[in-house]
Design a binder for these strands. Structure first.
Length: 431
RNA sequence: GUGGCUGUGGUGAAGUGGUUAACACGACGGAUUGUGGCUCCGUUACGCAUGGGUUCGAUCCCCAUCAGUCACCCCA
């Protein structure tokens, strides 16, 4: 219970991490790729609050799901409202769509989001308490083509990130009309072999028998191997929808595996469900997960509206790219460093740096009393192209020294011409 | 919520129940006074996660806590 002050002050909360300067470049790069893909597919960004009324998640995600029943950060604010840090963003997006009447004539409404989510889980490889998701939601269209487009978008995203070795597993879990029937027949089947199931499954085959299908334990796998497959038992409409989606994927040369065991843990899913998996990630191998959630809009008080979407884990994408050695290292560095030699040069150095920045040159200057040698070492470490040396001699003569850090040459010129010359040098570099 | 493994300086990482806790990298400073990337030299641990306990004495033994890690579970 008691934690030392030191731990409290110097340790980030469990399951959270700082994104340090050495890593933020990768994050920005990835975010750029995500946004660009959204642009290509005509998805527009929506930003919703990081906390919502707890009720939203209870209704939207389902109060019996693990996410809601044991993983939420819920608290009361000073006004007595029960609020919850969002564990995912689909419910909030739909809430906003309904609240702001975004569903007009122009359908589908295609939205994307990116930001932090919160789940009180035990931290593990690829799993954090604060993590980040990128996701899309297309609302208002029922036809299989939009399922396929969403799938293809996810695939092209992975492709853009050069993530090879990702497998797409797809399934249909039926709709509100046919799933209950399947559920019954599955329960019925499982009734006959409860004693062969693992402890967890014995418990949940009553509450949510579908979950037994994706249990990892061998004994359960054996039992469900000959269980009725949902793909065989969904209603005609669902079956046709599913085969249409598969045909569209095939027509686009998108590889996939139908996995009739694939089940999603959030209540709002129906019909098409899918996962993009990367097996070298460890236990948390799902990079992207999604599917249809046709009932959600109505559940949250809107007109019945079909919807499809997916969510991707940013940390997992980054982790996978690292494992795959395809994560670009983007280190931003200044182009120019100004070196004041001695106190007297400080003013001139600062003024010059400002002038360069005003011209759009990324520029830094050295602070503190450092020897010329150490200042040059600094310039070298920073990887700047040009160092500007300003010492007493230069000051007296109204000149500065420009040193090309990529070679050995240096020139002395009037301070007034310095900025022009630097622009020339940099322009030559970028050609 | 359950289980396994781990916890030494900015990082990687040796080490022993008993005076000054290796080494490497990094960082900082210097190698004749104003010049980098190589080289050389020097400096760099409120003392070995925190709190208890065992002991004449613990960083090394025991317990608890916290944290990290992996797996279960769950999911992105």
């Amino acid at each position: 219970m008691e934690r030392t002050g030191q731990t409290l002050l110097t340790g980030a909360p469990r399951g959270t991490r700082d994104i340090l300067p050495s890593q933020s470049g990768s994050w920005q790069w990835l975010e750029h790729q995500l946004r660009h893909t959204c642009r290509l597919y005509n998805y527009r960004e929506i930003r919703t609050p990081v906390f919502e009324h707890t009720e939203l998640f209870l209704r939207g995600i389902g109060d019996t799901t693990d996410v809601v029943s044991k993983e939420m950060y819920t608290f009361n604010d000073r006004g007595g409202r029960s609020l919850t840090l969002r564990p995912e963003n689909t419910a909030a997006v739909v809430r906003s769509v309904v609240e702001n009447r975004l569903l007009g004539d122009l359908l589908p409404v295609k939205l994307y989001y990116i930001g932090p989510m919160f789940r009180y889980d035990r931290p593990q490889a690829g799993r954090f308490r604060q993590f980040h998701q990128f996701g899309v939601e297309a609302l208002g269209v029922d036809e299989p083509a939009i399922d396929a487009e969403v799938l293809l978008m996810a695939a092209s995203l992975l492709d853009r990130l050069q993530l090879s070795g990702v497998m797409l597993a797809i399934n249909t879990i039926g709709c509100g009309l046919c799933r209950p029937g399947y559920r019954r027949s599955l329960t019925c089947y499982l009734d006959g072999c409860v004693d062969r199931l693992c402890g967890d499954c014995r418990r949940r085959y009553r509450t949510n028998p579908l979950r037994v299908l994706d249990c990892k334990r061998e004994e359960c796998h054996m039992v469900t191997r000959s269980a009725p497959a949902i793909t065989e038992q969904v209603c005609t409409q669902c079956r046709e929808h599913f085969t249409a989606v598969l045909e569209l994927l095939a027509a686009s040369n998108q590889a996939y595996t139908v996995d009739s065991r694939l089940v999603r843990g959030l209540d709002y899913y129906n019909r098409t469900t899918f996962e993009f998996k990367f097996d070298r990630l460890g236990a948390q191998s799902t990079l992207i997960g999604g599917g249809r959630d046709d009932g959600l809009v109505a559940e949250l008080g809107g007109q019945p509206t079909p919807a499809v979407g997916f969510a991707a884990g940013i940390e997992r994408l980054l982790l996978a790219m690292e494992i795959n050695h395809c994560l670009p290292t983007v280190a931003e560095r200044p182009e120019v460093l100004v070196l004041p030699i001695g106190r007297a040069a400080k003013t001139t150095a600062l003024t010059l740096a400002e002038e360069l920045r005003g011209r759009g040159v990324a520029c830094d200057l050295v602070f503190g009393e450092r020897s010329l040698r150490s200042q040059l070492r600094l310039a070298d470490r920073l990887g700047v192209y040009v160092a500007v040396l300003i010492g007493d001699q230069e000051l007296a003569a109204g000149r500065v020294v420009l040193k090309d850090m990529t070679g050995k040459e240096q020139i002395t010129l009037p301070a007034a011409e310095c900025a022009d010359k630097i622009e020339q040098i940099l322009a030559k570099r970028s050609v």
